[in-house]
Simulated assay, not measured.
Amino acid sequence: MIKHKDHFHGSDLEKIEQIYGIKKENIISFSANVNPLGISPKLREGIKEQIDCITTYPDRDYVQLRQCIANYCSTEVENIIVGNGSTELISLFIQIQQPKKALILGPTYSEYEREIALCGGKTIYYPLREENDFVLDPAHFISKLSEDIDMLIICNPNNPTGTAINVHDMRLILDACKESDIFVMVDETYVEFAENVKEISAVSLTRTYTNIAILRGTSKFFAAPGLRLGYAICSNSDLMQIMNQRKDPWSINSIAVIAGTLMFTDEDYIQETRDLIKSERDRLFKLFDESTRFKPYKPQGNFMLLKILEDGITSGDLFDRCIRQGLMIRDCSTFPYLDEKYIRICFMNPEDNTKLASLLLG
């Protein structure tokens, strides 16, 4: 098992406030990877009008919410299950699958390994290589799959590298996993920020593969981490039946149900988000790519991994420099296979992005 160091999470603003003496409301978090537009206007107004929803229990089967998600994702309603954030569903899938040995693409989010360990399983990592700009070589990866692996976990686009696996390569991986009876869990938390969602998202593959489950949430793209609304897409009816039997009833509250039916249909907000992130992603990648101080890795989501090229400067140094100006970046030395030469920034509003870029590049 890889040892994970402590770090400041994007939500740890109270801890930052205590250590640095900066009021949390004055901190711009480039670490949380949350949509800078804030919540959907349609959601903001709709919740006010429907606040009385909390006087009744939500539909136990969440039919209307699941139908909205199915329409949004272009899939079938029977393949949708909702949960208290994607974290609940990740836990459930792992608890039910009970993998003795799981393979994870790294560096990545540490919660997967934690859940596997809690279920008594062992985790091994397949490292994305810096010499390949952290882009997966599907043929080499598939050659490392074996029948003693029970589960494969992929974050796509991957956090923190920002790289992604396209649908063609994901199909090859699924075919190989099917031969070795490996269940594949794909975390698509950041896929909605991608320029070409359909080229990266594996939702279309759930129609023909039953050995895959896709996890998504509303924390990042819809800027609603406090709502705790997540969902999974899987066409394995037996597995979905077990999931529904094991899941706590009413784990999604009435406000989250209403919120979901509103935000997933706010097409103007969805398009505005994608336009903003694409524009800032292209602009900031070009800025850092032209610098001699950093090497940026081509991002597919709403954040970018940067390698520090200057001698004598560490990720901790840059974190400290930025936070003292009220700008919180992610020190990536805590991720497996990364060291103190890597930081991650997410794309915020243009003015804030320019301020951060000037501080890092100036």
Rank of each mutant, 00 (worst) to 15 (best):
E25Q: 11
M348I: 09
D238N: 10
G46C: 03
T218D: 00
P99I: 02
T108W: 06
K5F: 07
I16S: 04
S291N: 04
F193H: 05
R246N: 11
L13C: 14
R216L: 01
S74F: 06
R114T: 10
K100A: 06
L43M: 14
G312P: 02
L318C: 01
A232F: 00
L309E: 05
M263Q: 09
N166S: 12
I343N: 00
T218A: 10
E78P: 13
D150R: 13
D289H: 09
E351L: 12
T108H: 07
G260M: 13
I165L: 09
A357P: 10
N302M: 00
G120C: 06
I343D: 06
G217N: 11
F294I: 04
N159W: 13
D275A: 05
T334Y: 15
D133R: 14
I313N: 05
I242L: 08
D238E: 12
G301S: 15
V203P: 05
M263T: 04
I47K: 10
S143K: 12
D12W: 10
Q95K: 15
E195P: 01
I153V: 15
T123M: 12
K5G: 09
S315G: 15
C332D: 13
S201P: 02
G260A: 07
E351Y: 11
H7R: 09
F288T: 08
L172W: 12
G106W: 04
I39C: 11
G120Q: 10
S40R: 02
G21R: 06
A259Y: 01
F8K: 02
M304R: 02
R246Y: 07
Y297Q: 00
I323C: 07
T292A: 05
H168Y: 14
D248V: 10
I258R: 11
N349T: 08
S86K: 13
F335C: 09
I90C: 10
S31E: 03
F134G: 05
G316I: 11
L136V: 06
A213H: 02
F288P: 07
N236E: 00
L276R: 00
D137V: 06
L305S: 03
Y112V: 12
G106S: 15
V203R: 15
M348Q: 15
V167M: 07
V191P: 00
F288I: 02
